[in-house]
Design a protein around this nucleic acid. Structure first.
Length: 284
DNA sequence: ATTAATCCCTGGAGGC
DNA sequence: TGCCTCCAGGGATTAA
């Protein structure tokens, strides 16, 4: 499932493949993929548009066209395929085809059809309903400890689903959130407002570190994820808890367990990540 | 106001 | 072999 590291890897691939290409025609084979405007308008408005920049915000890809910004979220299994020749056989999960004036093609594939695209006037991408509420990018420059600390105090909700909301910080999905909580030694169900300052500092560092290392590894290939160049990621080799149920924790040897937290499969070490009843007193 | 549940989708795995 | 059920889950939406 593409999370920030996978989306960033796709962005980099697309930057090499489709920058400066001009759209000749767009075919939408599964209209529900297009959130807005209508699939017909989406296709018509893109004709003659040139891709001037490839950006990313959280897990959203932003194609900056001459007069429009195209938002694209891959959700679970969305992927882009670049084809030098339009006559290449069409995979049955192809839902949107961008035909360029030079005869090449960019195809959007999505087995489960969960991915979504929208088209808005240039410069309005970040104002879009789904992007406006996003938290900071998970890097040293944008993700500051103090505001993070403040926000965590406001919610009693379990830390894992809170981090998945993308409002405190962007980029974490089910894999990296489990990895981050393991690294920070925090139980996924620990209520946010019961975290100690020490724990919040560890969590803050872990989020930046895990996502940064995953980007450098080209993301993780768990089931089907491939980048725009068709290459697998390498970070799955560095995973400590995700998909390792029943294997020994690399820190303490206790067997990794899997539970459900807010409908999501959740992996953690029951020894390193203990659930506390309440916040212990902190001394200065 | 926060938080929980539901929905969208299909392929793969496991049971019998 | 084949049919059935269950599971994977991000984010929008609806309900409590």
């Amino acid at each position: 499932m593409p999370e920030l590291p996978e989306v960033e890897t796709v962005r980099r691939g697309l930057e090499r493949l489709v920058l400066n290409k001009t759209v000749q025609e767009v075919n939408v084979l599964w209209p529900r993929i297009i959130e807005s405007p209508s699939a017909e308008d989406f296709a018509a408005l893109l004709i003659g548009e040139t891709i001037e920049k490839m950006e990313r915000r959280g897990k959203f890809l932003i194609f900056r066209f001459s007069h429009y910004d195209m938002l694209s979220h891959l959700r679970m299994e969305g992927k882009y395929e670049f084809h030098e020749h339009a006559q290449d056989a069409l995979d049955k999960h192809t839902h949107v085809i961008f035909k360029f004036t030079d005869g090449t093609e960019l195809r959007y594939l999505d087995v489960r059809k969960f991915g979504r695209m929208s088209l808005v006037p240039s410069g309005e991408a970040l104002l879009h309903r789904s992007l406006a509420k996003l938290g900071p990018e998970p890097t040293q420059d944008y993700f500051e400890l103090a505001p993070f600390q403040q926000k965590l105090r406001k919610y009693h909700k379990a830390i894992k689903p809170l981090l998945l909301e993308q409002t405190l910080v962007v980029g974490l999905g089910n894999i990296y959130v489990d990895e981050t909580l393991w690294q920070a030694e925090i139980h996924p169900e620990q209520p946010a407002d019961t975290l100690t300052n020490k724990e919040i500092e560890r969590l803050h560092s872990a989020i930046i570190d895990v996502l940064d290392r995953a980007v450098k590894a080209g993301g993780s290939t768990i089931r089907t994820y491939m980048n725009a160049l068709g290459e697998a990621g390498k970070f799955q080799r560095q995973l400590h808890v995700y998909g390792r149920t029943g294997e020994p924790c690399e820190r303490c040897g206790t067997l990794i367990v899997k539970i459900k937290v807010a409908q999501r499969g959740t992996h953690f070490c029951p020894n390193c990540q203990k659930l506390r009843n309440r916040k212990p007193r902190e001394h200065k």
